[in-house]
Design a protein around this nucleic acid. Structure first.
Lengths: 109, 109
DNA sequence: TAATTAATTAACCATATAGTTAAATATAGT
DNA sequence: ACTATATTTAACTATATGGTTAATTAATTA
């Protein structure tokens, strides 16, 4: 899969989004990450692998502990992709924007 | 699925993202949307259904033509979710932010 | 060395996904 | 009425997903 699809796919799961939020304030071990969730450790382990593949986290082993840390670059890319649509809500005339663009189509790469 | 998961899931496919981009300048019929793609009409039809379920587009039928139009609200919600992480790249000290947050954990709801 | 802890891998299950072709539906035109 | 066009639904295939439990690997502690 292309990187952006990997990123959005990784974000399309509430457990993974909750994990990501839980990493906002610093790195945590896989075990600590798993604690709040009702699912098994292997399930968490696979969520972490999906997130690592998507570039959402880095993993670092220290002894038996595997520390996970939020990684920003792919989140940034996904955000930037979405912000291409910001014109549709940033003005108070979002609906009007769409109507105007329909009636006066412009091209933009 | 919860709405945010639906939205990210709908975005996690390059065909659907291309469709979304193609709607940036106004509504298009399902047939016109399908033209640039090498896949079958039923495949496009299902992509459009996924996008409608996710709230990324509205559909309106006029005779035999089904017009699809970009819809902003869910895109806005997804963008806002992602922007909760903007602190990790907005300063030129993104990396430092993470290090500091690791060493001085704060809570935020 | 034996036992404990942290995490992953393996094997399995049920469901979902993305595509196909063929058939069905619905509107429009002759 | 007949035909053509636009789109969806049905039936099918192959692969991916998200969960489980049991077994495995690796590091720590007694």
């Amino acid at each position: 899969m292309d990187p952006l699809s990997d990123t959005f796919h990784a974000l399309a799961d509430p457990t993974r989004r909750a994990i990501l939020l839980s990493l906002k304030h610093g790195e945590k071990s896989a075990g600590d990450i798993a604690k709040p969730f009702a699912i098994s450790a292997p399930a968490i382990s696979r969520h972490l692998k999906v997130m690592e593949k998507a570039g959402l986290i880095d993993r670092r082993r220290d002894g038996q502990i595997l520390y996970c840390q939020l990684r920003a670059d792919r989140l940034k890319e996904a955000t930037e992709w979405l912000e291409r649509y910001a014109q549709f809500w940033q003005s108070s005339f979002g609906r009007l924007d769409r109507i105007l663009s329909t009636e006066h189509p412009r091209t933009d790469k």
